[in-house]
């Protein structure tokens, strides 16, 4: 029925009875496409991603893999589902076993892939195909992770993920540990692979500028809730939630003014009502109640004043701050 590969359905995660993620619903369609989860540290974006990856079990709500509830899986079904969703982490140094050569890391991944039956020359040609795919030279197979550059490490991580022929790649800040020129090359690579392999990307990042090139859909999280989600171009270029607007206003632009700081990030968030209201420059009395994630045009926004923001990031410069 649905064309979604993977879906979070009202996922809530609590630790010690405190919810760190509230009622998040998110759909990952079949590739080539991408969904971005953006927000500041502590917003819950990584937790949501880990739940989608099957690394943690939601306290309530479901993670659906096609038509099936992930929590009902048998052991073999679960292994299959895990292989479908592969992670690529921020730091290749951390993400590779320091004692394993590139060749061994790829061989290990191949041993659990649909190509596990390949032997000898066929296997070697699959390894070189993988390396070729990520733009690495065959000579790298005998190197240990610390003997290659940061960009190469990240390429090895991508190759290892591709070895099991996944459908979804979870990209957790895939370029933030890299130099900007290397970052540009990795982004190009990811864009090419997305189309060549019809991959769905789930991108977790605080760098809004890289979202657009990989993801057509974006969810903005604040204090464990999705505050705005919709097509990337709409969300990032004409935000409807004041938090999205403040994120965009805070981005330094080449040769531009000093970016705008909205409210004070260290005031935290409200426990009841709209969690953003303490930082919100346009909060009103109505914000003491919790706003629903309501549909506005092609997106969902949880803000009583979404119509006032209406795609105008400069609203956050407004002086009507209520403490």
């Amino acid at each position: 029925m649905t064309a979604d590969l993977l879906r979070a359905d009202g996922v809530t995660l609590s630790y010690a009875k405190r919810a760190v993620v509230h009622d998040v619903s998110l759909e990952l369609p079949k590739g080539p496409t991408g969904v971005a989860l953006v927000g500041e540290s502590g917003s819950g974006k990584t937790t949501v991603a880990r739940a989608l990856l099957g690394m943690i079990e939601p306290t309530s709500g479901r993670v659906m893999f096609g038509e099936m509830d992930v929590s009902q899986f048998s052991r073999s079904e679960r292994a299959e589902y895990r292989r479908t969703v592969q992670p690529v982490f921020q730091d290749g140094t951390e993400a590779l076993d320091p004692r394993m050569t590139v060749g061994k890391a790829l061989a290990e991944a191949l041993s659990v892939s649909p190509d596990a039956h390949l032997r000898g020359a066929a296997r070697a040609s699959r390894v070189s195909e993988l390396l070729d795919d990520v733009g690495l030279d065959g000579g790298i197979v005998d190197r240990l992770p610390h003997q290659i550059s940061g960009g190469q490490r990240q390429r090895v991580c991508i190759a290892r993920a591709l070895a099991v022929r996944p459908k979804v790649l979870l990209l957790d800040e895939p370029t933030s540990a890299l130099d900007v020129t290397v970052q540009a090359k990795i982004l190009d690579l990811l864009r090419r692979l997305q189309h060549e392999h019809s991959l769905t990307y789930l991108l977790i990042t605080h760098n809004l500028a890289i979202v657009e090139s990989l993801c057509s859909y974006t969810a903005v999280m604040f204090a464990g809730r999705v505050v705005e989600q919709g097509p990337t171009r709409e969300v990032l270029l004409s935000p409807s939630h004041p938090y999205t607007a403040s994120l965009i206003a805070a981005l330094p632009r080449m040769g531009g003014q000093i970016p705008t700081a909205v409210g004070r990030a260290d005031v935290g968030f409200a426990e009841s009502g709209c969690s953003f209201r303490m930082r919100c420059p346009i909060a009103i009395d109505a914000c003491l109640a919790s706003p629903e994630l309501a549909s506005i045009g092609g997106r969902h926004v949880s803000c009583f004043r979404a119509n006032d923001v209406n795609g105008d990031p400069s609203i956050v410069n407004s002086k009507e701050v209520t403490p």
């Binding site: 500041e40 540290s41 130099d179 900007v180 605080h206 760098n207 809004l208 403040s246 994120l247 206003a249 805070a250 981005l251 330094p252 080449m254 000093i258 970016p259 705008t260 700081a261 909205v262 004070r264 990030a265 260290d266």
Partner: peptide
């Protein structure tokens, strides 16, 4: 975080203007 970054940048800029402070800033972010 990017929002906190904006606050700090703004603060540094204000100090420079108000107190005529000089700054040597090292960054990878052009």
């Amino acid at each position: 975080d990017v929002t906190v970054q904006a606050e700090i940048l703004r603060l540094l800029d204000e100090l420079r203007r108000e107190r005529n402070m000089a700054m040597v800033l090292v960054s990878h972010d052009l």
